[in-house]
């Protein structure tokens, strides 16, 4: 077999593995998973500390450079909070962040007020939206963080621009909040209500409450979406493999009789794998 052949079947293996992972996922966890997601250093971990009342000691470590590199969760009374690595911090982090987003029922997309959304943010958001299906509009929430870093006028200007971008590129404008974690923190610690209020953190909390997340429905929708995507990808891979096979057969027909035998066995293992997967799927549902 050529290297190309083995690669194609490896791709297929990855896809099939992903599919099995999704099917194996326990549906038992009933608490909604709230994940933060966004560019590095956006203030994701800081926000989660505030949302989980970690005022004196951080549960989610923060730092003014790249910090979070792994998924980390905190199980609260009614929610599970999931921290994810920042995007564009390290190549390896991006995939971990994607995995985190896949586990979430609600995503707080954190954007700090340095201009509007960058292309890379929009690209990630588009993928996220796809994976949420009909729940995207409701369950993706926009957080403009570090609202204390600029004047309110600038912050609002940025918010408006970002919403316009969402409307244009995602087809909807998410619910958005202008949050200052540091303001909230200081307000809580020094008992200054004015600061707490101006942090808009409570409003975000309330909004999450009002979402009334139907965990089962969201997950079904997300799984259906993943399945569809996977099925499409599997067929595409299969097709590609078939094309390759045909061409190789064509090329080598006269010279290598043994090759035909190899192809035959590959064919067989592919069919077996497919049957295996279809079985799992039917049993799982």
């Amino acid at each position: 077999m050529t290297a190309k052949d083995s690669m194609a079947s490896a791709d297929l293996d990855v896809l099939l593995k992903q599919a099995s992972d999704i099917l194996a996922r326990k549906q038992g966890q009933d608490k909604p998973v709230i994940a933060v997601w966004g560019m590095m250093n956006a203030g994701k971990s800081y926000l989660l500390n505030m949302l989980t009342h970690h005022y004196n000691a951080e549960y989610f470590p923060t730092k003014d450079t790249r910090e979070t590199a792994q998924l980390k969760q905190f199980e609260g009374e009614s929610y599970i909070f999931l921290d994810t690595p920042g995007l564009d911090a390290h190549d390896a982090d991006d995939q971990v962040a994607m995995d985190g987003a896949a586990k979430a029922d609600v995503v707080l997309f954190v954007h700090q007020p340095k201009g509007e959304l960058e292309k890379i943010e929009l690209d990630f958001l588009k993928q996220l939206k796809e994976s949420f299906g009909v729940y995207a509009e409701k369950n993706i929430v926009l957080v403009i963080s570090k609202a204390d870093a600029e004047s309110l006028e600038k912050i609002e200007q940025i918010e408006q621009k970002v919403l316009e971008q969402c409307h244009l590129h995602l087809g909807f404008a998410p619910e958005s909040f202008l949050i200052s974690g540091t303001r909230f923190h200081k307000g809580i610690q020094q008992h200054k209500d004015g600061l707490v209020k101006a942090s808009h953190l409570q409003e975000l909390k309330q909004h999450i409450e009002t979402l009334g997340i139907d965990v089962r429905a969201v997950r079904e929708e997300r799984i259906r979406h993943v399945q569809n995507t996977l099925l499409l990808e599997i067929s595409a891979a299969e097709e590609a493999l078939n094309d390759e096979k045909l061409q190789l057969e064509d090329n080598l027909y006269w010279n290598f009789a043994r090759f035909n035998d190899a192809m035959l066995s590959l064919d067989l293992s592919m069919t077996l794998k497919k049957v295996e997967y279809m079985n799992e799927r039917i049993l799982g549902e």
């Binding site: 730092k63 003014d64 450079t65 200052s180 200081k186 307000g187 200054k192 600061l195």
Partner: peptide, 27 residues
Amino acid sequence: NEEDWDDELGEIVTRVQMKSKETRQMQ
């Protein structure tokens, strides 16, 4: 922006400060 709440004015007052030497060094 270092912020505080001005009770009399009933609004936030801010002051631009440099990030700490340590933070800058760390970055």
